[in-house]
Write a protein that binds this DNA or RNA. Structure first.
Lengths: 190, 190
DNA sequence: AATGCGGGAATGAACATTCATTCCGACCGG
DNA sequence: CCGGTCGGAATGAATGTTCATTCCCGCATT
């Protein structure tokens, strides 16, 4: 079992699916780009489904780890909100392929079941976003709306903007990111 | 040429793709649900691609027609904004299948080219949304951001909320819709 | 050191399945 | 009968998966 080869396969899958969608990523192409034989993939992953799901989980972990860096629930609500928003913006601008992949994943049979859990978590109790909005409600800092609706107000614009950025229609500079995060805050704040 | 049969085929396509995605809508199933033979579809549509695209165009027209009802560019910016927002909300709550279809379409090779044109228009000159935001900027009623970013702020939350509604996680009552539209306005207003 | 051996890893051609599309015979109104 | 419409089995291309075979490398024997 060669962990490097496993990583190659995952990278090839990420690139192909992010760039060309699930339709454009047959196993034969993945194998070719990874520089392995078609059968080899099945030594590392039981099926294409498993491969796709494991890749998603890996990305999910990386994203979570990244945005939680320097995050403290002790800070004021607004600061916490901006920290997470800018963190996500930054991550996806740095790794556009990850964004495209996660997006594809969610709009597919694979992610259908997992759809519920938006971009991140809500997986059980430890969802940073849910608890941020719950705290915000409790402190009367945010509009009195269902938590999920607050999520929509906060992240809907973000994903839309990131799409535009990746497709080249706008350029997400740090300054624009800050402005957008502020605008989202205007949307959710009381 | 039986126009009724043509409509049946389109309706079957709409339902299957909206409910199960493109993967879950082979021509054989479409034919079965429409109550016609597989070959018959090709008497009405040159190919599956054509069928899918024509269905999209038809929905696009219906949506446009619906939200422009009672719309006047002479009204104040805020009112125009709320009119369009609530119109879209209302339409998609009434026709969830249309929402799901349009969404699937945009996240697929079919809609990739057309991606640029968001949910509606920007097709050429007559895009109501673009001109709304342009007017808003000119009147200094909205934040000084790229028009596309204003679109993101306005419609990102909406689509996210509609998804949640269709998936059954929240219920989009008229009252909640109004609140969300207001919140979106808070996001874009100066 | 050279040789032979064992076994896990890798391979890619072959297979089974799925799907869009085609084609030809059945059917029906006139 | 006959023109045109319809139906659904047949077709061929594409794709996920399997499996018999090859390859590679570490180790034991001489």
């Amino acid at each position: 079992m060669n962990p490097e080869k496993r990583a190659d396969i995952m990278q090839a899958t990420l690139e192909l699916i992010a760039e060309h969608g699930f339709h454009g990523a047959p196993m034969s192409l993945i194998a070719e780009r990874a520089g392995v034989g078609a059968g080899t993939i099945y030594r590392y992953f039981a099926s294409k489904d498993v491969l796709i799901n494991e890749l998603f989980l890996e990305l999910d972990e990386k994203i979570k780890a990244q945005i939680l860096k320097g995050y403290s629930t002790a800070r004021p609500i607004r600061e916490r909100f901006l920290h997470l928003s800018c963190g996500l913006f930054g991550y996806f601008v740095e790794f556009p392929l990850h964004f495209r992949y996660v997006e594809q994943f969610h709009n597919s049979p694979y992610g259908a079941a997992r759809r519920r859990s938006k971009i991140l978590g809500e997986a059980g109790q430890d969802d940073v976003f849910k608890s941020l909005f719950a705290d915000g409600l409790q402190q009367r800092a945010m509009k009195e709306l269902p938590v999920l609706s607050l999520c929509s107000l906060a992240f809907g614009p973000m994903f839309s903007a990131i799409r535009d950025h990746i497709l080249g229609f706008i350029e997400l500079t740090p300054s624009l990111i800050a402005q957008l995060a502020e605008a989202c805050w205007d949307g959710v704040k009381r």
